[in-house]
Nucleic acid binder design. Structure first.
Lengths: 131, 131, 131, 131
DNA sequence: GTGGTCTAGACCACC
DNA sequence: GTGGTCTAGACCACG
């Protein structure tokens, strides 16, 4: 599982971690029962302070998505997949809605918005395919 | 000009005001030379703290989009339209890109993403038409 | 509202704060709509690090007991009283149960346990009355 | 001797073991000279990590309650009974005091607290009798 | 002034 | 090794 942090995005780092882990579980990159990377390991991998990682993990625990195995690590719970699947679309939708609402408010022509969307999707796919 | 604030969106309120005023100028809802609503009036209309409105106006002044007319108020500068037009697409694109990138990272099927986009666009247009 | 922290109790400090605030709300010492003491003020009063207070407040927020009023402080929500009332007995019961279970396991005579309870209750009441 | 561990209680597992062994000695369920269950056996019986059991035993050794018999195991020392008897009431009292103090702080009516205590005692006795 | 976030570094309990 | 807790101190956004 690869977590990529964009410190300049304006989104809280801990929240980026939370969301990406939910997505990983939703798409079964992380499976129930599996141990997620340790706080220290994730901190090293993402170049983020361990406390920040810990906060993200705590959040996931309080949502019932992770379970502590004392002295061993944090485990994906059995109910996590369903919960994360359910969350995934909502998380994306929420942000998408805000952006599209703003796009509309900007009085850009609908065509221009669609064009922007298409070019960005193409850009992402191109990138994804290229790598 | 109607400014609508979404306090729950997590986005900075002053920034929502800044962006929406830029959009209003770009689409010539606000014209050069025109006075924008006073801090007090805008604060009342948007139910936002006057200090926050003031901060947004200060930001726009420092970008050369608004001009102080002593004893009268703030007016849109002559160069504002071109500047805001130039900004508009970039501001939207930046946010759109971040959202679509996350959508892709979430491993949602491209079809599902497109579906979400279409349903949100329809929702917005429906709302816009209805009102 | 007075929060008293016992650092030697073994209970997490943030949790002591959470519980005592819940109790204050349950017994209407803190009322819905009221602002609770600021993070810095509470930190000063309890001689605890502001981060620790902040964590307690965040926990209460995520349980829907506190609400943020941007730039102003944290407010007791309208639903908080019911929620805290419901929690209160459970929180006490949980700890009481554990202690009594251990007391029983210790093979102390039931009479001895009752005697201990009575003497502790008397001690507390005496103290409470005296002060 | 039956040791029952409550992993969800938040109390240190090794301490639960220490205390219950002390109680067993105080009530002469474990007699001086007797060998206590091996680390491995105790670990199996309680479903606890052997290291944790080992730590508890080490603690009891350092308090002079257990004695190592080389190649054989750990036995209860002759002075243990007196020591554990002396400790027992204090250990219970300490916890009881903390819980009752919190109960009082919670502004629950004294009657309600007594009711809780009685129902918990009844519950425990009922359970104890049933088994 | 308010809370939110992040970093850095410490100590503890458990495996 | 694991996570949990706490402290100290910095910076930001909002009112």
């Amino acid at each position: 599982m690869i977590i990529s942090i964009d410190a300049a995005s304006g989104l809280a780092i801990y929240d980026q971690i939370v969301r990406q882990i939910k997505f990983a579980i939703a798409s079964e990159v992380l499976l129930p029962g599996e141990l997620i990377p340790s706080v220290r390991e994730m901190a090293k991998q993402t170049a983020v302070n361990p406390n920040t990682v810990s906060r993200a993990y705590r959040e996931l625990q309080s949502e019932g998505i992770l379970d502590i195995v004392r002295g061993t690590g944090l485990q994906v719970t059995t109910g996590a997949v369903r919960k994360c699947r359910k969350d995934r679309q909502g998380l994306i939708q929420e942000r998408l809605r805000a952006v599209l609402k703003e796009a509309q408010q900007s009085q850009l022509e609908v065509d221009e918005i669609r064009q922007l969307i298409d070019s960005e999707l193409a850009r992402l796919n191109g990138k994804g395919t290229a790598e």
